[in-house]
C-alpha cells in the first residue's frame, strides 16, 4: 500500500517535470518569434487615427509640403509599387508608409537612427487604387503627405 502511494507521487512528479520541460523547450525553440517591438496593433488597425495612435502615440497628423512621395501615377502591377518617401523636416525620427485602401493599411514603419536621413524606398503591394500616405514624426509631432496611385491589377488576394 505504502509503496503504491510513493509510486503515485513519483509519477506525478515526473509528469510535472515533463510538462515544464516541454514548456521550456518550446520557449527555447522560438527564441526570436516574440518581437515585442513589432507594433502588432498598428498593423491590425484599419483606420488611420487608431493606427497612428498605436504606432506613434498621437492620432492627428498635420499635412506638410516638406514630405515628398515618389510613386507612379499608374501602377500596372499592384504587387510591386515602388514608393520612395523623402523629407526635409528637421529631427525626423520615423517614417510610416500607409496604403489607405489595403486590407492592412499600414505597410511599413521605419525608425531612423541618428544621422540617418529622411529617406526610405521600398516596393509595396496595393490591392486597389487609392492614396499612399506617408506619416513622418519629427520633433514629437506628426506630419503627413499623400499621393494617389491608380492600380490596374491588384496585388492582394489572388
Amino acid at each position: 500500500m505504502e509503496t503504491d502511494v510513493k509510486r503515485r507521487i513519483m509519477l506525478k512528479g515526473s509528469l510535472a517535470v515533463g510538462v515544464l520541460g516541454v514548456a521550456a523547450g518550446a520557449g527555447l525553440l522560438t527564441p526570436r518569434v516574440v518581437l515585442a517591438a513589432w507594433p502588432k496593433e498598428a498593423f491590425a488597425a484599419k483606420m488611420m487615427p487608431e493606427m497612428l495612435q498605436a504606432l506613434l502615440g498621437s492620432d492627428s497628423a498635420q499635412e506638410s509640403g516638406e514630405i515628398k512621395i515618389k510613386a507612379p501615377d499608374i501602377a500596372e502591377n499592384g504587387a510591386v509599387v515602388p514608393i520612395t518617401v523623402s523629407t526635409e523636416l528637421a529631427g525626423a525620427s520615423s517614417i510610416a508608409v500607409i496604403a489607405v485602401n489595403n486590407p492592412a493599411p499600414l505597410v511599413a514603419s521605419y525608425e531612423l537612427g541618428e544621422g540617418t536621413e529622411g529617406f526610405v524606398s521600398t516596393r509595396i503591394k496595393m490591392g486597389k487604387s487609392g492614396d499612399v500616405v506617408a506619416v513622418v514624426k519629427a520633433d514629437g509631432k506628426l506630419y503627413s503627405a499623400k499621393k494617389e496611385v491608380k492600380v490596374t491589377i491588384g496585388g492582394c488576394g489572388g
Partner: peptide, 22 residues
C-alpha cells in the same frame, strides 16, 4: 550604431527592396 529599424507587414512586395541614406 543603429541606423534604421524597419517594421514591415505582408504589404511589402515579394523579395523586398529597401533603400535608405545616412
Amino acid at each position: 550604431k543603429n541606423l534604421l529599424t524597419a517594421y514591415w507587414s505582408g504589404g511589402v512586395s515579394q523579395n523586398p527592396y529597401l533603400s535608405f541614406k545616412f
